[in-house]
Design a protein around this nucleic acid. Structure first.
Length: 597
RNA sequence: GAGGGUGUAGCGAAGCUGGUUAUCGCGACGGCCUGUCACGCCGUAGAUCGCGGGUUCGAGUCCCGUCACUCUCGCCA
């Protein structure tokens, strides 16, 4: 054994209490703060576990004094010293270790640090790009450490819960056959086969289904998924899902497993009590009541269908749209102490609605004695009582209406108004509100292409009663599909799967895949399904998103160690980057740059 | 692919209807300080105002272009 490189820690910076009074300890960590009072120094030493105050007293020898004087923020050091209780008036109740301090006898500088590009832990104000460029410094912040710990705890709790219920964690390949019917695939060129490519999985969907055919019965995986689409605050090119599949189950088995799982996990990780079951809304009800298939149930402001009233009004715009089979829906914005329903504010609500395709936002204010004023109120003269009663409105409230030819646009634009009201009027309750959205349509009409496609994916089971009318009326078919929604975010999506070759082929055909193309793309799945597949179903909760919500963040970046920015670039390592010609040659690739003058 | 926002010392910001030396806080550097814990006090350095062009006697400020970041729509089975 050679001479010791450094004095190795005997404990961490978060663990000492007055019970350790008098103990000789060695701490390793970073200089979090350094207060020099001349002949007394206070050094806050930080590691992942906490912060401990180190004191260099006036009796320090020359060497110790020199070391203390040379310390800069974020130097990595080893401190040897003795734990002592702080005098009563010096106790810091804010600190976990605030009752003690370590009187330094020796300070070793393990590594130094130049002036920092930004101040660690100065909160969220630093531009994110800079934080990402120096992510190793950003990760030292207590916020990042806390969030990544939360993420770890969350995943560990999931693993334990599922393992205890006979689930097997099985890895599926991340270089697979490209089946680009959903998002764009990321491709990996094959060196051995010029012109051939692997794809990174958008999800382990087909493999987990084949695991069911393989008799694995209950499978899960903390799976990385890749989708080559534009990033967002809650969307990355690569993200992590709890991928899960079970054999011999029906929908409610999957739902109650998830309710049990998250009930357990939220209790264990955050000491938060979830209800034993989550509210269930059909897709149609969710859209009609909240305008969204991922409603935030932490506040009310429900949408009401007011087409019948609008038809009786004298407002020609409404009557015209209704005459053409359109829709008129409304929400009631409750009176607010802090937000004035000014023209300017109404315009900002209208702008929110217009983003989702509303042509305008009609409004009227509720005055005293059940009166209506402003906006379109004059067209509802004589109908005041009916309007106010239907909307459940009270004095000081404002009624906001959207009319649109298209049901979905009418709903979603009003949902945007609802969400803005929730935020602006401070209506959103604290906590975690889960709900299931069930009975989704199986197919969606592709306007551009002029064909039907799977609303979720092509492997979901149609509900029994629609089996005879799949081809004749695809738009009406509901699937055995379910989404889990948390605080207005879609956090999981799943379904009971098809396990019948002929039914699967019918779905492919409806989605514009002839038998030959289907065979070419999904032949391996169809082959597997010829060999007695069990009925099965599953779900895939998004880990990043859930942890983000649990951490009360609005960006997924805050719970990912090394995220890419919205331009799909990692400022730290500069990926994506160009490669050597030699690498391209080996892969038989020629780069064709886009033409731009 | 489209629209909105932002870009001023290392970081975070101020800079009004264009006007002479571009402010402030934090950080850095130097000095003082025996109990702080966001220590305090004194001092110093540090900015071609994202970049390019234009209007003007004069541009951080107005106009055009461009780049970067960011939010949103589209997209995301």
């Amino acid at each position: 054994m050679s001479e010791e490189l450094f004095s190795q820690r005997t404990t961490t910076c978060g663990s000492l209490t007055k019970a350790n009074d008098g103990a000789r300890v060695i701490l390793n960590g970073w200089v979090h703060r350094n207060r020099n009072h001349g002949s007394v120094h206070f050094i806050n030493l930080r590691d992942r576990y906490g912060i401990t105050q180190v004191v260099v007293d006036d009796d320090a020898d020359e060497e110790l004094e020199a070391a203390a004087n040379s310390l800069k923020l974020e130097f990595c050091i080893a401190v040897t010293g003795v734990v002592r209780k702080r005098p009563a008036e010096m106790v810091n109740p804010e600190m976990k270790t605030g009752e003690i301090e370590v009187k330094a006898e020796k300070i070793e500088i393990l590594s130094t640090c130049p002036a920092l590009p930004f101040q660690i832990d100065d909160g969220l104000k630093t531009k994110e790009d800079l934080r990402l460029k120096y992510r190793y410094l950003d990760l030292r912040s207590q916020g990042m450490q806390k969030r990544l710990k939360l993420r770890h705890d969350f995943i560990l709790s999931i693993r334990n819960y599922l393992s205890a219920r006979d689930f097997l964690e099985i890895e599926t390949p991340t270089m697979i056959k490209s089946t680009p019917e959903g998002a764009r695939d990321f491709l990996v060129p094959s060196r051995h086969y010029p012109g051939k490519f692997y794809a990174l999985p958008q999800s382990p969907q087909l493999y987990k289904q084949i695991l069911m055919v393989g008799g694995m019965d209950k499978y899960f995986q903390i799976a990385r998924c890749y989708r080559d689409e534009d990033a967002r605050g809650d969307r990355q090119l690569e993200f992590t899902q709890l991928d899960l599949e079970m054999s011999f189950v029906k929908r409610d088995d999957v739902l109650s497993l998830m309710e049990g799982l998250f009930g357990h996990v939220f209790k264990e990780v955050m000491d938060y009590d979830l209800p034993a079951t989550f509210r269930r809304l059909t897709y149609a009800d969710a859209m009609n009541t909240y305008g969204s298939d991922k409603p935030d149930l932490r506040f009310g402001v429900e949408i009401k269908d007011v087409a019948d009233m609008a038809a009786k009004s004298s407002f020609s715009t409404f009557k015209e749209i209704i005459g053409k089979g359109g829709f008129v829906k409304a929400v009631c914005a409750p009176h607010s102490e802090t937000v004035d329903f000014s023209r300017k504010y109404i315009t900002s609500l209208e702008d929110a609605a217009k983003v989702y395709g509303a042509h305008g936002l009609a409004w009227m204010k509720v005055g005293e004695n059940k009166s209506l004023s402003g906006g379109v109120s004059k067209f509802f003269e004589g109908m005041e009582d009916e309007v106010i009663e239907r909307m459940g409105a009270a004095e000081g409230d404002m009624i906001l209406l959207v009319a649109h030819q298209d049901w979905k646009r009418c709903c979603t634009s009003l949902s945007a108004v609802r969400n803005k009201l929730g935020k602006d009027l401070n209506l959103i309750r604290k906590g975690f509100e889960f709900c299931w959205i069930i009975d989704f349509p199986l197919f969606e009409y592709n306007e551009e292409g002029g064909f039907w496609e799977a609303a979720h994916h092509m492997f979901s089971m149609p509900q029994q009663e629609y089996l005879d009318t799949l081809e004749s009326d695809p738009g009406r078919v509901l699937g055995d599909l379910y989404d889990l929604v948390l605080n207005g975010y879609e956090v999981a999506s799943g379904s009971i799967r098809i396990h019948d070759v002929e039914l699967q082929k019918r779905i492919f055909r409806i989605c514009n895949f002839d038998d030959e193309t289907a065979e070419q793309r999904f032949g391996f799945l169809l082959n597997a399904f010829r060999y007695s597949p069990p009925p099965h179903g599953g779900i895939a909760p998004g880990i990043d998103r859930m942890v983000m919500i649990m951490a009360e963040e609005t960006s997924i970046h805050e719970v990912i160690a090394f995220p890419k920015n919205t331009a799909a670039v990692s400022p730290m390592d500069d990926s994506p980057s160009e490669v050597d010609q030699k690498q391209l040659d080996e892969l038989h690739l020629i780069v064709k740059y886009p033409e731009k003058p």
